[in-house]
Simulated scan of single mutants.
Amino acid sequence: MLPILASVAALAASSTPIHSAELTHGAQAYTASYHTASSVRFTQVEPRFGNRNAIPVCRWQADVRVDRAVAAQGQSVPAFGKAVHRFAPLSGSYAGTCAAARSQVDAEVARYASARNAEAVSVAQQDRAVLVNELDSVRALTVKG
């Protein structure tokens, strides 16, 4: 079997945030927004058998996560943006090419992310304390005295 990496895709599961939080730290107001996102890896293989034709098989693995984005005064603060939670990976295989299976895989990943929406919102709500600690750490490094 010779695996071929067909493609790597990063898909936002929703364009609107699953949760947003406003917080004031020091003299600065911050807005944290949380989105679910996924990345899917495809590998197409063609098993070879001596007595019959090869049938391509598409193997895939999806990673679904909750990402945090932070803004201050309307400007993005990339230093505080990161993945705050990763769900268990989802994987499978389809008989046929990866190009033909892509829409089925995308639909399955979307259903998986949707089924975990309540957990994603809970994780995002709990991240407020983590973000405040990160802001405290940065402030401790920059404030003199």
Rank of each mutant, 00 (worst) to 15 (best):
N51L: 10
C98G: 02
P3I: 07
G145Y: 09
A54S: 15
H35V: 11
C98T: 00
W60S: 01
A27C: 09
V8L: 15
S76H: 02
I18E: 00
S15V: 08
S33N: 12
L90S: 04
A88F: 05
Q75R: 10
Q75T: 01
V123Y: 10
L2R: 06
H25S: 10
T16E: 15
F49C: 10
Q61M: 10
A13T: 13
R102S: 10
K144E: 14
K82H: 11
C58D: 11
A13F: 08
P3V: 05
S38H: 09
E22Q: 15
S114L: 10
S91D: 14
R139H: 15
R65W: 05
S33V: 12
V57F: 07
K82R: 13
Y30M: 06
C98D: 08
Y94V: 01
G81Q: 00
A79E: 09
H35Q: 11
P3L: 11
A37E: 13
P47C: 03
R65I: 04
L23N: 03
S7N: 11
A88W: 06
R68D: 01
H25M: 08
L11F: 07
S38I: 02
A71M: 05
I18P: 02
A13M: 15
V64D: 01
S122T: 14
A10N: 13
A72L: 00
M1Q: 02
G74F: 12
Q125V: 06
V45L: 14
S76C: 01
I4M: 09
Y34S: 02
A29D: 14
L2V: 13
P17T: 04
M1P: 03
A79R: 02
H85Q: 07
R111N: 05
F42H: 11
S91F: 10
V8C: 08
P3W: 13
R102T: 01
Y94H: 14
T31L: 13
A72K: 01
